[in-house]
Simulated scan of single mutants.
Amino acid sequence: MSERGVHRHLPRDLRDTDVVAVAVLPDFRVRVTHRDGTSVVHRFDPADFHGDFIELRDPATFATVQPIDGTLAWDLGGGLVYDRGGDALWLHAHGHCDGSHDLDRVER
């Protein structure tokens, strides 16, 4: 592959990074399962939700997460969607974090 940085660690078939299942856990954590079978718990820091997305600090709103088009997403209505790409989550799950997202940590 010719990508530089953390992206060189992505699988050849990017569809393998698609989010296919999500389970909400306490304390702003979600278990994310990818098409290739990778499954880990990601922890979000609610303080990172601000602006249009501040309502995600509410645990009930956070719990509405779902896979949408291969991403981890929250449909907040009115055309507003907060999402994290499957590729970034997959990289984070495999220990390759570029710091470009709001994930606090991965729990194995």
Results as ranks from 00 to 15, higher is better:
Asp69Leu: 12
Asp52Tyr: 09
His101Glu: 11
Arg12Leu: 12
Asp83Gly: 04
Thr17Ser: 13
His92Leu: 14
Leu10Asp: 08
Arg31Trp: 02
Val65Asn: 05
Ala88Leu: 13
Ala93Cys: 13
Ala88Asn: 09
Val22Ile: 15
Asp83Phe: 10
Ala60Trp: 07
Arg4Gly: 09
Arg105Trp: 03
Ile54Trp: 08
Arg12Pro: 03
Trp90Gly: 09
Gly79Gln: 03
Arg4His: 11
Thr64Tyr: 03
Val81Cys: 06
Ala60Lys: 12
Ala93Gln: 11
Asp83Lys: 10
Arg43Trp: 00
Trp74Cys: 07
Ala73Cys: 10
Gly95Trp: 09
Gly77Pro: 07
Ala93Val: 04
Gly78Ala: 05
Gly95Glu: 09
Asp52Phe: 08
Tyr82Val: 00
Val20Met: 04
Ala23Pro: 00
Leu14Pro: 08
Pro59Met: 05
His94Asn: 15
Leu89Glu: 11
His50Ser: 14
Leu56Lys: 03
Leu89Asn: 11
Asp13Phe: 02
Asp52Ile: 00
Ala47Pro: 04
Pro26Asn: 06
Ala23Tyr: 01
Pro26Phe: 09
Ile54Glu: 15
Asp48Cys: 11
Asp16Asn: 05
Gly5Ser: 12
Arg12Gly: 09
Asp69Thr: 11
Glu3Met: 14
Gly78Pro: 06
Ser100Gly: 13
Arg108Leu: 11
Ala63Pro: 12
Leu10Met: 10
Gly77Asp: 13
